[in-house]
Write a protein that binds this DNA or RNA. Structure first.
Lengths: 355, 355
DNA sequence: CTGTTAGCGCCTTCAC
DNA sequence: GTGAAGGCGCTAACAG
């Protein structure tokens, strides 16, 4: 097969072909008059190549539009320079911004990203997701919600794992970068108590979600520390509808003057339920959410909420993960990213006569 | 190297190893007493295998925890059973739900998903993204925003392309599945005119985004068709802040009684700006958004908006794409997914004396 | 129905 | 500083 140094029909993004095949290192070698191995050396920046040869090879690579075949490289090296993201949840702000931030950090580090999303976190579904990621040969796995099932499996995955919600127990290649839920929620509860509210009610996320559990735990602990009653939490499922439903129940009770919802979506649903029941926010009832979604600041009553910086968390997590992958780190680490209570318009002094 | 049928330290999700290597087809063949090719046949459900042998091989696969190496398969076949998603935008509802729906559809079809996200859609950035996807050996590409640069490149990609915003011109392997922006926006404009508003103002998305352009075009056309004045559109960037800014400007003008924002986020920012300026929604000003984000129905004034079903679009798009990949379709197709105007609380009759 | 051979494109080892 | 051989794990083509 003859090789033409100016292949036809090839643009900046083309996949130039010689005959019907993609351009391979051998094609480049032939045109440049060197061995295939030398092409490989140039591609991998091996210093053992004379400047003259390097230049010639590089020009040929350019001219032919050669791109190394990653499948061949993966096969040989057993590594794919790809990180797998197992993300649970729907198109909500938390999972979505985590995914985007992870993707960018991964790419900046010179890796690719494979993604598997599951809506629910039952063991079977997550098993499938993990397995498909592993089958595709990812070098490491990032998971946003390390369920108990995941925790049981993680030691056997055979690849480093980064968890974005903690804490797991640290093993040799285990990394956890989590938001400081305890800090943010404690601030929120104290803020409400400081405004004169007798206690704080809570709409929880699903108990299978570790991140929901930490928030509920933190809420309970903060109330206990302050010596207040701990009311029973209402069960939500992160959705606006579940926040609305919980709000309908809570609106019936005049003693309820302060509510912490485990995410902003439920807080928004809650606010609407209170409005529909004729209870004013914040005059009658104060509300705090969690996440600081972009719209929080623009609601007709801007939402007081706990901001977590998922972008920082993802960037830091991927940084650690890449350290492990490249042998620059050999032990696990738990890192906590600060959160911040953002006080806006949905919290105010407790009403004079709460009951 | 001896092979043990009950390897140690192996769980359901493990990557069992023989010695230090991963279990390969040859290991399975040795244990099962067949050739490696027969293992391959069993894995690929080749009918040409006797039930007895198939069973024995399958048991061995199970016992050893064998998983085929996808890199080797890709190298040989030149296909990776992986689809690349080039997605533009931040963690907003549109791109996020499209990504999730695409991921699930892709997985249901037995493919994997690689994702590259870019915030902005300048040519260089998108080029990089496309190139990295192509380098990783994706079999096809899905793009949410086919910019002009992308359109110029697309013929040379060498893989089938699915665009989630159209229309491109159809080529042999080109697929477009888009929401019916024209229909939804026309309904919105007519709805507002029907309420007695003299005309409808518009906050547009960035003009580099095809999906923004279609919405603006549709708004303009609908007004023209109705014989109304077409006011100058205000420029937004999809963000809440930009909606707010546009709203501040529009709130000054008593003649403005109806506004169509190109997405719900800008509509929410707009609503807040009107509120801050003392203009009531919908008594003084009516608002329509686009997307139907989950929170739209739960705002203190539930948002009238154009709902687009991105999940349906993604599922249909991936279905078509897989048809192309598997040789069951040989020509392009433009498919339009219906949208629906959802009338809620932010639209009402034009005020009696608009000026 | 099952096995043998060859080779996908690359990098490691070892020559020169 | 460069090249030649070998093999990563898999499947297409052909034998038997």
């Amino acid at each position: 097969m003859s090789v033409d140094a100016s292949p036809r029909g090839v643009g900046a993004l083309g996949r130039p072909t010689v005959g019907v095949r993609r351009v391979s290192g051998i094609d480049v070698a032939r045109v440049a008059g060197v061995s295939q191995k030398t092409v490989s050396r140039v591609v991998n920046n091996d210093p053992q190549v004379s400047p003259e040869v390097r230049r010639r090879v590089q020009e040929t690579i350019e001219a032919l539009g050669y791109r190394p075949n990653t499948a061949a490289r993966s096969l040989l090296l057993g590594r794919s320079r790809t990180i797998g993201l197992l993300t649970v949840g729907s198109a909500t702000y938390g999972p979505a911004s985590l995914a985007i931030a992870t993707g960018r950090a991964v790419r900046d580090a010179g890796y690719g990203l494979r993604v598997v999303n599951t809506f629910d976190l039952d063991a079977g579904t997550m098993d499938d997701g993990l397995l498909s990621l592993l089958d595709q040969g990812v070098d490491a796995i990032v998971v946003n919600e390390p369920t108990s099932m995941f925790q049981a499996r993680r030691h056997r995955l055979g690849v480093p794992v980064l968890s974005m919600s903690g804490p797991l127990d640290l093993s040799e290649t285990e990394l956890v970068v989590e938001s400081d839920a305890a800090g943010g929620v404690t601030d929120a509860v104290r803020h409400l108590l400081g405004l004169g509210h007798a206690t704080v009610h809570h709409i929880a996320g699903p108990s299978e979600w570790p991140s929901a559990v930490w928030r509920t735990d933190a809420w309970r602990a903060a109330l206990r520390d302050a010596g207040r009653d701990v009311p029973e939490a209402l069960d939500g499922d992160w959705s606006l509808a579940s926040g609305y439903e919980a709000g309908r129940a809570l609106a019936q009770r005049p003693d309820v003057t302060a509510i912490f919802a485990a995410n902003d979506h439920m807080a928004i649903g809650l606010a609407r339920a209170l409005q529909d029941a004729g209870r004013r926010v914040p005059e009658d009832v104060s509300i705090v959410g969690y996440d600081d979604v972009p719209e929080a600041a623009y609601l007709s009553r801007a939402l007081t909420t706990v901001r977590q910086d998922l972008t920082v968390a993802a960037v830091r997590g991927v940084e650690l993960l890449v350290q492990v992958l490249e042998g620059r780190r050999d032990q696990g680490l738990l890192e906590v990213i600060p959160t911040r209570l953002v006080i806006r318009e949905t919290t105010g002094p407790a009403p004079a006569s709460p009951r």
